[in-house]
């Protein structure tokens, strides 16, 4: 049994099939890349897994249990956490409280130790310990994305969905972010990352899935993907790839 499995996952917005009959799976410990041109349906697929949207038709199984009718907060508590492409932080709250929310509500009894110490650990883990008491909105975008990572990790997930946490980072920040993902994998968390930064995807991922116009067009190791005809077509057809 896979850790996570999607069968025929589909969603329409008006006439548009944003995600169309997509099958996918995830095994424990992997880092999987989810790529594809703008508007391919990557974020929408995250929304479907995390419970922000419900597939119709299609089903999503987490450890064999159907989750595609569950509300987002329950899916989070079961062990699937995410970050958002356009950051969604608690701007007027200090960084610590942003993370604390994840710990108090997501982890929900999974943490028996001191929550303050655990928040501190997480902030150190993502490198935000020196801005712990700053209101989240005063941080740079790179740091705000790390708040989201820390908040998601605070919920003690088994699966972490990262939506473009490397977009808009400078080269140093990019290397740091790649290190961070590797550290998360070492913790035993299974990661799916949406990314346009090919260097990061190719460098970290064990497996890559490619979406185009809502359909899965390829799946395989980084080597297989770079030599896949359909993928090359899609990306060469795109001027900004």
């Amino acid at each position: 049994m896979h850790l996570l499995e999607g069968k025929g996952v589909t969603i329409h917005f008006g006439g548009l099939a944003a995600v169309s009959d997509v099958d996918f799976y995830l095994d424990k410990g992997e880092v999987v890349g989810l790529i594809g041109p703008n508007g391919a349906g990557k974020t929408t697929l995250f929304n479907l897994v995390s419970g922000a949207l419900k597939p119709n038709p299609g089903e999503i199984l987490f450890k064999g249990k159907k989750i595609n009718r569950m509300p987002a907060y329950k899916i989070c508590r079961m062990g699937i956490a995410r970050t958002f492409q356009t950051v969604k932080i608690f701007g007027n709250m200090p960084v610590v409280d942003n993370v604390k929310i994840g710990l108090l509500f997501g982890a929900h009894g999974k943490i028996k130790k001191d929550t303050n110490a655990e928040v501190k650990n997480l902030l150190e883990f993502v490198g935000l310990d020196d801005v712990a008491n700053t209101p989240a909105r005063d941080l740079t975008l790179a740091h705000q994305k790390r708040i989201e990572v820390a908040r998601a990790l605070a919920t003690q997930p088994e699966i972490l969905l990262l939506d473009e946490i490397m977009a808009g980072l400078n080269p140093t920040e990019l290397v740091e972010a790649m290190e961070l993902v590797k550290k998360i994998q070492k913790k035993g968390v299974t990661v799916v990352m949406i990314e346009h930064v090919m260097k990061a995807i190719m460098g970290i991922c064990d497996r890559i899935t490619v979406l185009d116009y809502g359909k899965k067009i390829a799946e395989g190791t980084p080597q297989e993907i770079t030599t896949n005809k359909k993928v090359i077509e899609v990306y060469l057809g795109e001027s900004d790839a």
């Binding site: 995390s50 989070c76 956490a81 969604k88 608690f90 007027n92 994840g102």
Partner: peptide, 20 residues
């Protein structure tokens, strides 16, 4: 804390485990 987080960003609260 949950109530404040809801005021700040309801989606983010829900995806952090808050039964909004």
């Amino acid at each position: 804390l949950a109530l404040r987080s809801i005021g700040e960003n309801e989606d983010a609260a829900a995806h952090s485990g808050v039964n909004v």
